[in-house]
Simulated assay, not measured.
Amino acid sequence: MMYNDLKEAFLLREDVTFLNFGSFGATPKPIFESYQRFQRELEYEPVQFIINKGPEYLKESRERLGEYLFSHPDNLVYVPNPTYAVNIVARSLDLKAGDEVLSTDIEYGACDRTWEFYCREKGATYVRQTISLPIQSKEAFLADFWKGFSEKTRLVFISQITSATGLILPIKEICEEAKQRGLLVFIDGAHVPGHISLNLTQLDADFYTGACHKWMMTPKGSSFLYVKPEHQDELDPLIISWGYQADYPSHSQFLDYHQFNGTRDFSAYLTIPDAIDFMKMNDWWGVAESCRILVRKWLPKLCDLVGSEPLAPVTDEFIGQMGSIPVRCGNPVELKHILYNEYKIEIPVMVQNNQVYIRYSINAFNSEEDLNILEKTLKDLKKRTLIF
């Protein structure tokens, strides 16, 4: 369905200023209705849906997603979220005592915990290389990052768009340099699909995970793991189920091992073609560009208001549809509650490396008025010395 006013496409509460699309996305009505149709079909005939029709629907969905991401569909498997995908790879990777996984100190916390856990089990080291903020240039970031490399480095794990800091990182250059150094590369692209363009074939990472339930707007719990063919058989299933050493194996061990994890409702995965159609019908790349312009227009102003500065040059190279404002406050958890309960603003307050960030996201339903509200709220919070 095509909308003249895209705000009408979403189910979000009208009394809340929603500036937190980055956390869990929000699903437009036509995609949500498709989701419910699949769920009803599941309940009409659960056995036929799960055993026969469901796998065919999954295949069709992966084919559409493969076209969208420029990947062969058999190199993609659906997972509930990117953290699940990171666990599959981290658990399976043949790390030895003394090996190192090179990352940054601005990664998503759940992924940090995953790598710390599996590296500790295997006697390896997870290296959180310090990134100087604010980033001055792409070259400065790359110089910072590669300081963490050593002869023990086996894998690079890095976000394409970071979570707390909301920054687009130069992943293409990281992949190219890593290949020259003989390293595996795993990209956390949780915020990428539907946010900025992604061509998995050109990027040539060994592993890539992305969320469809964020910027692609599918229902919650729909993400993917991409694995280059030469690594697929190296990955053990995170959940041992009927696909492991299957009685009737398919053409792909990768799909057998990771696609079916026992009884569950996988309807969210099946709506991905609907999400792609919705974006195409509503000129989503044009919408995204308008949102990025709004984010970049306001980021310097909001940072200046609280006495900080943007975390990178305010350009398309580093800033997409999210802007993170460094602030100082005594109690970030309390600040988050105050923003929602007193000011009716849904916005994350994040802490990373002892720095607090208020991160705003802009999507089709947002307007300049939402950022005016945020500006007035920040001024009021300063008067109340809740930020200083």
Rank of each mutant, 00 (worst) to 15 (best):
L302P: 02
L378I: 05
Q202A: 12
L95E: 03
C212R: 09
L198D: 03
D283L: 08
L169V: 03
N282C: 01
H337C: 10
R40L: 14
Q48F: 14
T271P: 02
Q39N: 14
F365C: 09
S290G: 13
G307F: 04
Y108G: 06
I240L: 13
M279I: 08
Y118R: 06
I168N: 08
A110S: 14
R120K: 15
P219F: 00
V287W: 05
S222K: 04
G286Q: 10
T263C: 10
S34N: 08
S267A: 13
A268F: 03
F254P: 03
P219D: 05
F254A: 02
K29V: 11
Y108V: 11
V192I: 07
N331S: 10
C111F: 14
M1T: 11
V101E: 04
G54Y: 01
V327G: 01
K138L: 09
S34T: 08
D236A: 13
N81T: 09
M2A: 13
F157P: 00
T201R: 13
E43K: 14
N354I: 10
D74V: 06
L65M: 12
L183N: 06
E14Y: 07
D256I: 01
R154D: 02
F260H: 09
W215I: 08
F141D: 06
E14D: 15
K382S: 12
P332K: 03
D236F: 13
L155M: 15
S163E: 12
V86D: 10
P273V: 03
P73W: 08
R91M: 15
L11C: 09
Y108L: 14
D247K: 13
M1H: 10
P273R: 01
R64N: 12
S250L: 04
T104H: 05
Q253N: 15
Y44T: 15
I373F: 04
V77W: 03
E8P: 06
I239T: 14
E121C: 13
Q321E: 11
Y126I: 05
I161S: 03
R328T: 15
G221C: 03
W284G: 00
V327R: 00
D370W: 04
L42T: 07
V101N: 01
L93V: 13
D233F: 10
L270D: 02
L235C: 05
I196L: 08
D74C: 09
C329F: 00
L69R: 07
L167N: 00
S290T: 15
D94L: 13
V227E: 02
S132E: 14
Q202L: 12
Q39S: 11
N20L: 10
L6G: 00
Q321P: 08
F318M: 06
A97L: 10
P313Y: 01
L238K: 10
M350N: 12
T377K: 07
R128A: 09
G323M: 01
K297C: 06
N87A: 12
V327Y: 02
I373M: 08
Q355R: 13
Q36S: 09
H231Y: 15
P46F: 03
E334Q: 14
Y360G: 01
A143M: 12
E63T: 14
D105H: 05
Y226F: 10
E368Q: 11
H231R: 11
S250Y: 07
A288M: 12
Q129M: 07
I240A: 09
L11E: 12
P332F: 00
K383S: 14
Q180T: 13
E334W: 03
N261Q: 13
S197L: 11
E33A: 12
S197N: 12
K336H: 12
R113G: 15
F186I: 02
